[in-house]
Simulated assay, not measured.
Amino acid sequence: MKEFGLNDVVEMKKGHPCGANAWKIIRMGADVRIKCEGCGRSIMLPRQEFNKKMKKILVKADAE
């Protein structure tokens, strides 16, 4: 299982219609809210669905 955290930038299996495929995790819980790095649109996915659709972590946020 891929380990991801708040403020990580991830790549999803399908790109966003704006052309970007980098998403920043802005909220975590039972649902995960991600924000498109291209256009700024945000969507919320159930965690189970997010785990299936996430491809890889592009940028790991600094753990503080």
Rank of each mutant, 00 (worst) to 15 (best):
M1H: 13
K2N: 12
K2F: 09
K2G: 09
E3G: 15
E3H: 14
E3W: 11
F4Q: 03
F4W: 11
G5Y: 00
G5H: 00
G5I: 00
L6W: 12
N7H: 13
D8M: 00
D8S: 02
D8C: 05
V9Y: 04
V10G: 01
E11Y: 08
E11H: 11
E11N: 11
E11M: 14
M12C: 00
M12G: 01
K13Q: 12
K13C: 09
K14E: 15
K14Q: 14
G15R: 06
G15D: 06
G15M: 05
H16F: 10
P17S: 02
P17I: 04
C18Y: 04
C18E: 07
C18Q: 06
G19W: 07
G19P: 11
G19Y: 08
A20C: 15
A20P: 08
N21G: 06
N21W: 06
N21L: 06
A22D: 15
A22N: 14
A22L: 14
W23R: 03
W23Q: 02
K24W: 06
K24R: 15
K24E: 15
K24T: 12
K24S: 13
I26Q: 08
I26W: 10
I26T: 14
R27Q: 13
M28K: 13
G29F: 09
G29T: 10
A30F: 08
A30H: 10
A30G: 11
V32I: 11
V32S: 02
V32Q: 03
V32F: 01
R33W: 07
R33N: 07
I34A: 02
K35E: 08
K35L: 03
K35Q: 08
E37Q: 12
E37R: 09
G38Y: 00
G38L: 00
C39M: 02
C39K: 01
G40Q: 03
R41N: 12
R41T: 14
S42R: 15
I43L: 14
M44H: 05
L45Q: 11
L45I: 07
P46L: 00
R47F: 00
R47V: 05
Q48R: 15
Q48A: 15
E49Q: 13
N51G: 09
N51F: 10
K52E: 12
M54T: 07
M54V: 15
M54R: 04
M54I: 13
K55G: 07
K55R: 11
K55C: 03
K56G: 05
K56R: 13
I57K: 11
L58D: 05
L58V: 09
L58A: 07
K60E: 13
A61E: 10
A61K: 07
D62N: 08
D62I: 06
D62V: 09
A63W: 04
A63C: 07
E64R: 09
E64T: 06
E64H: 05
